[in-house]
Design a protein around this nucleic acid. Sequence first.
DNA 1: CCGTGATACTTGACGTCGCAAGTAACCTGG
DNA 2: CCAGGTTACTTGCGACGTCAAGTATCACGG
Lengths: 163, 163
Amino acid sequence: MGKAPEPLTDREQAFLRAFARALMTVPRELDADLMRGEGMSASEYFTLMHLSEVPGRSLRMSDLATAAGLSVSGMTRIVQRLEAQGFVRRGKSTCDGRSWNAVLTDAGFQRLTEAWPTHLASVRRHVIDHLGDVDLEAFTAAVLQFASDGCVIGERADSASAG
Amino acid sequence: MGKAPEPLTDREQAFLRAFARALMTVPRELDADLMRGEGMSASEYFTLMHLSEVPGRSLRMSDLATAAGLSVSGMTRIVQRLEAQGFVRRGKSTCDGRSWNAVLTDAGFQRLTEAWPTHLASVRRHVIDHLGDVDLEAFTAAVLQFASDGCVIGERADSASAG
DNA sequence: CCGTGATACTTGACGTCGCAAGTAACCTGG
DNA sequence: CCAGGTTACTTGCGACGTCAAGTATCACGG
């Protein structure tokens, strides 16, 4: 990581400043809304969300961590909490004894369904409502590339998972 | 925070997914780069940065916290760390005995100057380089509004500050 | 001048997350 | 079949940031 001679244009700097601010505040607001309204952290919500969107509602721990953008150990703790609440069940993978699948339970799906409106409202209020007339396609394409150091998600757990 | 009937368009959902991911990963990457390259956390870097950009290089604790998007107590800890390293000095405000000003020292300014290229390179790599052909003006204007719950920064410390 | 309430910061207790080390399971070569 | 290396997850530890409570200062009313 050598010296970077090019010192950013004014436009880039202005954007960066705004983006840095959003990076600090948005997650906190989203998390706070979810916590106040549903007693659930954003990490937990996103974990349930990712599980709900996958065939079999089942994902390997590491894939789940990758999907949620957390470390594997962080995901371990979250799943422990969710399991204690009965929202997630864990089963050994049938094809790889090292792997554990996190499986969304009916109660977990129910919980997600309940929490969804709160999160939706929060997201609208803090983000969507401020999009104005930006080109969403271009915006999305750009943001998708941010901090992309070889993060390919794709993988999915084998649908079977022993109790 | 009642029910939100409108369930987001596909475009909005795709954007949100990308943005949520960036929200999780970008700060971590930026922080990690800064830590690896300079042994300094992003919070510390931004604190020094905000101080360096203000007349007198001096800011009240609470204004500094607001500027950096952290809680006041969080800023207390950061300034404690920076002070221990000699990058920041603290002085009682001359006009309000309750207020403390954080003042950037020459060593602190020097440190910021050293760390700057590392951070710049990191920011380029993780964000700027991926902007493609988005309309930066519109993008900035939108992002600037995210999570804006009455956050006006403006305030500045009185330039005097007793040793 | 002094009491009451508000304001500015600090400190203590707590929760979360990441890294590094540890354990278990897989897999390849002999 | 088993030794050695790799992979998947969990646990110990430390760093960081928030909330709540505590301390010092200010500002207003009597």
